[in-house]
Amino acid sequence: MKENFFTKLDRWGALLTALAIAAISIAYLTQSYLASSKLYNIIFLVPMVLIAVFLTVIIIGRSLKMVLKSSSADVTNNNPTPTSDGKNLVIAGLMGGFLVYAFSIRYVGFDVASAFYIAFSLWIQGERRIIVIVLMSVITAFAVTWLLIHGARVPAIATFL
């Protein structure tokens, strides 16, 4: 398999994840310490962050060896690489679409955003019957939005309901 940006990113994935966790932990501790340096504000955080940093060092040590040694990804087959074939592009699409969906509710309302996400996921997963896409997205989105607003009484943002 030819190496591209995504496979390369994937090879470094485990290591980057550990680094990200360590960075978030340290940032969290710093911010808490600045908020208050009193004992009970940080008594639990300090040991936890120390453990996180310690584990990160071990993980980096181990995976660095593997990443440099071979080009094969140091991963179990839990999840697929997002680029190796068409099916995995579907997963990347679903996930990216999901983020867009969540952030677009504010602007287009829960009903419209949901309808678009359903239509998009159906299409990306290979559904090509227009009638199925339209009916399913509209009916599901509006039914769920209606229940949300009138059933659970959530003051949800919606365009049509």
Partner: peptide, 24 residues
């Protein structure tokens, strides 16, 4: 079929998340 199930369940989960916090 999964392709029909996934978007439906995800939209319900989204609605549930909206309900539990009451905002975005």
């Amino acid at each position: 079929q999964v392709r029909h199930l996934v978007p439906t369940v995800i939209v319900i989960a989204m609605a549930g998340s909206y309900a539990i916090t009451g905002n975005l």
